[in-house]
């Protein structure tokens, strides 16, 4: 056993709710150091995900994540589209056709998602990007996976991502639009790290 397609659909649904609820907060974070469209883009992107899930109900968790990738890449518009799109695509590919996801597969899929973001965006840890939420999350998930409990993996990932997002506050951005601001980017949370933490918290919420 493990997590099934219902978990995946619930994860994406909770993610869409989180984006809608935090839309204004993400816009404000992005206004400080970016171009203030992150909240709007993510909200629109995840609404498109919900539409796709309704039109074309997936049969496996992997299929749900690939469908999400396509919707986000088509509808988000900004850099977050291809970054999250690649993350969900790589995670979906890692899960393959399996009907159930166990703790090890889950940790591996999160790692594949993070690797996709790094490959696409060329950012490293400490650049004040979503990588700063994903890398601690992947490490925490891998450590938690040893016990074989999927919920524990997802909670560990969500907590680490949240801490990682908070830890972007003092950083000076080296990638993305915020890097144009140089030192002035310090003192603000990275919007991509913030939305990543919301998405990973939704994954845990869906498994609870």
């Amino acid at each position: 056993m493990g997590l099934d397609v219902n978990w995946a659909v619930k994860w994406l649904t909770l993610s869409a709710q989180a984006m809608a609820e935090h839309r204004v907060w993400l816009i404000e974070l992005d206004r400080a150091i970016g171009d203030s469209d992150h909240g709007e883009n993510m909200d629109r992107g995840f609404q498109a995900v919900l539409d796709k899930l309704a039109e074309n109900p997936p049969e496996t968790p992997g299929a749900a994540l690939k469908l999400t990738a396509m919707a986000l890449m088509s509808k988000v518009g900004g850099a977050a589209g291809p970054l999250y799109g690649t993350a969900f695509l790589r995670a979906g590919t890692a899960l393959g056709d399996a009907a159930y996801v166990d703790a090890a597969a889950l940790a591996a899929a999160l790692g594949a998602a993070r690797d996709g973001i790094v490959a696409r965006g060329k950012a490293e840890s400490g650049d004040k990007t979503m990588v700063d939420a994903w890398t601690p999350a992947v490490e925490a998930a891998a450590a938690a996976a040893a016990d074989g409990d999927t919920l524990a993996v997802l909670i560990a990932a969500a907590e680490a991502a949240e801490a990682g997002a908070v830890a972007t506050d003092p950083l000076v951005a080296r990638k993305g639009r915020a890097s144009y601001l140089g030192e002035r980017s310090a003192g603000h949370r990275d919007p991509g790290a913030a939305s990543s933490a919301l998405i990973l918290r939704a994954a845990a919420g869906a498994a609870a």
Partner: peptide, 12 residues
């Protein structure tokens, strides 16, 4: 984008 905004669209 596919809805006519500034941006890029995977579908397109």
């Amino acid at each position: 984008t596919s809805d006519g905004r500034i941006g890029t669209s995977l579908e397109k």
